[in-house]
Simulated scan of single mutants.
Amino acid sequence: MANIGETTLEIDLSALEHNYRYLKSKISDSTKFLGVVKAFAYGSDMVAVAKKLESLGTDYLAVAYVKEGVLLRESGIKTPILVLHPQPMNFELLIYYHLEPSMYSPRILKRFLETAERLQTTDYPVHIKFNTGLNRLGFWENDVEYIMQHLEGKTAIKIVSIFSHLAASEDSKEKAFSLNQIECFTKIAKSLDQLLGYKPFRHMLNTSGILNYPEAQFEMVRSGIGLYGYGNSAAIDAQLKPVANLKTVVSQLHKIEPNESVGYNRAFTSDGYKTTATLPIGHADGIGRQYGNMKGSVSINGKPAPIIGNVCMDMIMVDVTGIECKEGDEVLVFGASSSAEQFAASAKTISYEILTAISSRVKRVLIDP
């Protein structure tokens, strides 16, 4: 196995392309595609991922915050960028960088309209977020007339899309709830169209929605986790390729005798003769303490090595008893052959969390054949 020399997050852009094309194959040719690149592109490399998606022809990108969109613009990204959770203090910056805000509440709409009018914009593109059941952000169904009252006679902004978010699109037990959300959103869109006199494009589906509710793709879909190789089900995961491969190395091997302890607070005590490996990765790199004490394992020379003892700030220790390995050998924490979903499940969490937790001090290496 190759020696990478240090903890590294490999970002496989060919896997990203594969996932993009797979998801595109599930929608109509006329349906727009939005790639979600917030949170450093789910913990990978936001600029590299955005540039790849732009080269593939994605119609929109989405970030959570204005500063993420600014980074993309300053890196040369020209594709329209939707900011999902903008704050008023950043509205001027948002307009300067030609970012497109989500209007999700009366306060945000009022404040953005004031800023746009002061800066003398005309038909500045905004997206209206409606809450249909997730109860996180968004206007209510009965806010349509309120929105129209505030826009009457105004030319500073223009609604280019309306959108919502399914709460449980991956859960077949919640199908009735999801269908009710779709029906509610359709009703809102019809009402707004009639009052506006034109039709903003609509989008509601996330990755699981694309796969489970294709009839509700409307004019655009949004994909985040699917682009990075995870589809919220084992069957879909098999069709996708993980973009991020987290690797590290064996720093040192130890021979442990019966009843010897390993790590802080003596959290692990050996029940026999063991060989342990210390790896240069810890909770400062994104491997939380919940992964210690036999929760979570890494792969060394193709074999699982469980994490033992408490995760340290800069190190974890794993049991390599019976595994042929030496100091300097490569270790796979998660990736193509041992997924982040499996790693996360060992600590009863989800792939999103472990992917986005990988800290900035971990070296990023782009793979783009």
Rank of each mutant, 00 (worst) to 15 (best):
M1R: 11
A2P: 15
N3H: 14
I11D: 04
S14F: 06
A15G: 01
H18G: 11
Y20S: 09
K24V: 08
K24F: 07
K24R: 15
K26S: 08
I27A: 09
S28Y: 04
D29H: 11
K32Y: 12
K32M: 14
G35V: 00
K38Q: 04
K38D: 02
Y42W: 12
V47W: 00
G57H: 00
G57F: 04
A64C: 05
Y65G: 01
Y65L: 04
V66W: 00
V66M: 00
L72T: 05
E74H: 08
G76K: 01
H85E: 06
P86T: 02
Q87D: 13
P88M: 06
M89I: 10
L94C: 01
L94K: 04
I95Q: 00
Y96Q: 15
Y97V: 02
Y97P: 00
H98C: 02
Y104G: 12
Y104K: 06
K110M: 14
F112A: 02
L113N: 07
Y124S: 05
P125K: 06
H127D: 05
I128K: 09
I128S: 07
K129N: 04
G133Q: 06
W140F: 14
D143V: 03
V144Q: 03
M148G: 01
G153L: 01
T155F: 07
T155D: 14
I159K: 02
S161M: 05
A168G: 12
A176G: 09
S178H: 13
Q181M: 03
E183G: 14
T186C: 11
A189Y: 04
K190L: 10
L195N: 06
L196C: 07
F201L: 02
R202V: 11
M204T: 05
N206Y: 01
T207Q: 02
S208I: 07
N212W: 08
Y213F: 14
P214C: 07
P214Y: 09
A216D: 05
Y228Q: 03
G229M: 04
N232T: 08
A234H: 13
Q239N: 11
A244M: 14
N245C: 12
T248N: 02
Q252H: 15
I256D: 09
I256P: 10
E257N: 14
N259I: 11
Y264W: 13
R266F: 13
R266T: 13
R266W: 12
R266Y: 12
T269V: 15
G272A: 02
G272E: 03
G272P: 02
Y273Q: 15
Y273S: 14
K274V: 12
T275E: 10
T275F: 06
A277T: 05
L279C: 07
P280T: 07
A284P: 07
D285T: 05
Q290Y: 10
Y291S: 05
N293W: 07
K295H: 14
S299C: 13
K303C: 12
K303G: 11
G309D: 04
G309L: 06
N310M: 14
N310R: 13
V311P: 09
V320N: 03
V320Q: 01
E324K: 15
K326Y: 13
D329G: 09
S339G: 09
S339L: 10
A347E: 01
T349P: 07
T349E: 03
T349C: 05
E353K: 15
L355S: 13
A357K: 13
S359D: 09
V365W: 10
D368S: 09
P369W: 09
